[in-house]
Design a protein around this nucleic acid. Structure first.
Lengths: 210, 210
DNA sequence: TCTACTATTGATCATACGATCAATAAGATG
DNA sequence: CATCTTATTGATCGTATGATCAATAGTAGA
């Protein structure tokens, strides 16, 4: 109804059109990955001439970077909201691991993996990756520090532990991306690993046996 | 001396030329990443017409896949040799973690990350990635099983533990790739994490304080 | 030496990418 | 209704990719 051999127009306010472009890039990235966010693909998705996208977004590398940031920041906010309501650091950590490793966010994992690769040739994207990684690490560190303060966790270096946790989560998710098939559940053993890392008793982080 | 505005010839045996092409792809990948392994780039590196590369390698996606396999298999063999000589599973595991997380193989990490991303659009590469991941997991599993047999490690599922370990290592390395700067040492805390995972006493995997 | 084989190449095609710009037309403003 | 502002577009450029094929030239064998 909208795309085949069709060419029209439609005039919108700059703000509205800019938002539409950003949304198209956002959705495209989630559906097909960051590398699918291309001048022509974005234009086609909102049924507009490629030149219009270029007009609003003179630098595609920047659009890719901001699209990445938008997606990842939203994920962080979502997880943060989910976790913040829980009473103890131990529960917050367990819930965080559970939700990040249940496979429900594989589309975002694709974004991460592509960003690591593309970031080597897109400096703006690389900067965004560093920023978002810092934000994630800060969130995790908050939980770890709270746990240390309450005496539930034990570690000399909460910042390093947060990096470690982030790396473990990213690695397991990236891995599952490729092995999706005989996937097996990631997150089954990570609890024991994290317990060891933070000086918890074995099973302290085990998810409630539903 | 060899490249600028120069065009000659040089006739070699098919086997020799094929090997030269494979080597060029191999080196290019290690130096600039898998995405730099392109028909023209490979041809330029050995000072040959692009068409010749296409003649020997009719499918570039296949060349990229085999280049990936070659690099990663070599890394596995290297680490395996390094570790196999050690007497106990605990020492083998500690040495493995140490050598894989000391940052000396970041060029290979780039290959891994790019392979995860490119594999989504290159089926041959995706298959190679799965194969090499399986090979790595098998190697790690061997160490874990030996540890369980000797009573040093404790886990219900050595195969799952091996996947977990592989994911942790990959994730930490991929992460360090981007944060190279304030890198901090990966591998400092992972020992405790792995101890927790395999039921070891705290510090059992700590690298010998040199 | 001459010939037959074949490794090698130049030319060219088709595709996809980002980018630029003058021309157009939609809509607000008077 | 007439005019002006500007959102939008078609056309086009330059680059990079993989791929194909007839033509060339090096070399081994007769």
């Amino acid at each position: 109804m909208s795309s085949p051999t069709r060419k029209k127009a439609a005039r919108k306010s700059p703000a509205e059109r800019a938002a539409e472009i950003a949304d198209a890039a956002h959705d495209l990235a989630l559906e097909q990955g960051l590398s699918a966010v291309t001048l022509r693909a974005v234009a086609a998705r909102i049924d507009v001439a490629p030149a219009l996208v270029a007009h609003y977004e003179p630098d595609m590398q920047a659009l890719i970077a901001s699209t990445f940031s938008s997606i990842v920041a939203a994920e962080l906010a979502e997880v943060d909201a989910l976790v913040a309501v829980l009473p103890t650091p131990r529960e917050r950590l367990a819930a965080m691991l559970a939700t990040l490793l249940d496979g429900s966010r594989d589309d975002v994992t694709v974004i991460w993996v592509e960003a690591w690769a593309l970031g080597r040739r897109n400096e703006a994207l690389a900067a965004s990756v560093r920023d978002e990684m810092d934000a994630w690490q800060a969130m995790i560190r908050g939980v770890v520090e709270a746990g240390v303060a309450s005496g539930e966790f034990e570690t000399d270096d909460p910042a390093a532990a947060a990096w470690q946790l982030l790396g473990m989560i990213d690695g397991l998710n990236a891995q599952a991306l490729v092995r999706w098939g005989d996937a097996a559940d990631r997150g089954s053993l990570i609890s024991h690993a994290v317990e060891g890392m933070l000086g918890l008793a074995r099973g302290a982080l085990a998810p409630p046996p539903r």
